[in-house]
Amino acid sequence: MNRVIINLYPVSQGGGLQNALSFLNFLVSDPRKDKVIVLVRANSVLELNCNKNNINYISIKDSFLGRLKVELYLARQVSKVFKADTFFTLFGNTPLVKPQCLTISGFAFSNIIESDVDFWGFLPFYQKVIKQLKDKMRLYLSKRGDILILETEHLKKQAEINKTFDFNKLCVVKMAPSSILNELYELPKPKKSKIKKILYLSGPHPNKNIHKLAVIFQYNENFKLYVTLPMGDYLEQVIKSFEYYGISEQLVNLGPVSPGDVPSIISSVDAMINIATLESFSNNWVEAWASNRLLIVIEKEYVRSSCNNAAVYIDITDGKNAARNIEHAFETSALYIEWGIHELSRLPSPRQRYDEFWKVINA
């Protein structure tokens, strides 16, 4: 049986954290567990999970120096001492000092693949250059890996067209709802109400375009946006955008939420929204479908390829028509929810996704 190092150190929040916890939930009862060591951040929910479930792990300080330790020394050293056959990074790149074994990485940096999108265009010149240099380093490190896992056929196709990874072996392991969110399937349907609560479950990143929603919400006083942002510059930008249009009362910030609290938050809203400039695959999509909530998305090719008819598409540059489209979608939400169930049925279950990862690891 292969000895495997599961590198979860790059994972800290959001959908990546949900999927990491889902992976660990299945590893607990897996006979292969004794042949696995997991790398995690110290004092994280992932470390707590490993400790609670007797999963072998090594914790590394959550800091820049901790990251350097993993990249420059620890990944190779642990692989050598553990006599690992495979070094698997769930989301991230191959370590800078490559382990002397098979390396597999889950690649979710869609902006590197879809290079025609000016992903960092909102930044000042020098900050943009720094981000682009970091992306070049991520690409370089990923190219050094043996196998790269993408989340959608769309990204694989784009990577092949753009020759992003040269001759690297690419494979697709499709997304699935995290196993820690099984409660979503049991949530009651939203209660009928004049006020429509719309949830944007996301961290603070300008490419999420949350600050652009005020332009749309100004046209319907019954729309209320719920966000999950930490205190900081981006939240201030969002707040100011709603203040500018005189609709501050239509914005509610819940603050960051833990993965376990996601079902209860979704249960209190009528719809979910994601209008990001670019995503690899959004957990928001499957969360909306699993919970029978209306899904509102941006009109982009990457979204169409994954959501098909299971969402209402809006043009965020046309606030008035976008508001009308959302209002009409609420009136016909049953149809979108039916399509959501259909799209969900085409995706693997959390257990199937876990098994697909092991198929790649053992290939």
Rank of each mutant, 00 (worst) to 15 (best):
L225D: 01
V297F: 02
P99C: 11
F87C: 02
Y313F: 14
P230Y: 10
L229H: 03
V312Q: 03
L335V: 09
K80M: 11
Y226V: 05
S241A: 13
V11A: 02
V215K: 12
N56W: 02
Q158T: 07
Q218D: 07
E299V: 04
K156T: 09
E356W: 05
L155P: 02
L201W: 00
A276M: 06
N51I: 14
P124C: 09
M137L: 15
F167H: 13
K83D: 15
V257Y: 05
S63T: 11
G15W: 01
S267P: 06
R32E: 09
I58Q: 07
F87Y: 15
P263V: 08
E249C: 12
M231H: 10
V117D: 04
Q158A: 13
E221Q: 15
Y302D: 01
M1R: 08
L141H: 02
P124S: 14
D116Y: 11
E151H: 14
Y219P: 02
I113H: 02
N321D: 12
N168I: 04
V97T: 10
Q250K: 14
E47G: 05
F281P: 01
L347D: 04
I266Y: 00
D135Q: 05
L139G: 05
N207T: 12
N111E: 10
L347R: 15
E301P: 14
P177H: 05
V117P: 02
D30C: 10
A322S: 15
N274Q: 15
I273V: 13
E236P: 02
H328S: 13
N43S: 13
S345W: 09
A290R: 00
E279M: 10
C307Q: 09
I326G: 00
F119I: 05
S268K: 13
D85N: 15
S241Q: 05
Y9V: 02
F23H: 04
N220G: 09
R41T: 08
F109K: 12
L347C: 12
S12P: 04
L8F: 15
F23S: 03
Y302H: 15
P348L: 05
L17G: 00
S12M: 08
N54Y: 09
S268M: 12
L17M: 05
G121M: 09
V269K: 01
A271I: 04
E249R: 15
Q13G: 06
G145D: 03
R32H: 07
L254W: 08
V4N: 04
G260V: 12
K169S: 12
F122Q: 12
E71G: 08
I273T: 00
R346H: 08
R353V: 08
S142Q: 11
E71H: 11
G16W: 00
Y234A: 00
A311M: 07
I5M: 09
C50L: 07
K163Q: 15
Y200D: 01
S29K: 14
D62Q: 10
V360W: 07
K208H: 02
V269R: 01
V4Y: 04
V36R: 01
P95I: 04
R346M: 10
N309E: 13
K131A: 14
C50G: 05
A271H: 03
T317Q: 10
I130P: 03
I195K: 11
R41D: 06
F88M: 07
Y234R: 01
P190Y: 04
K136W: 11
F122T: 07
I180D: 00
V97N: 14
E249V: 11
L181R: 06
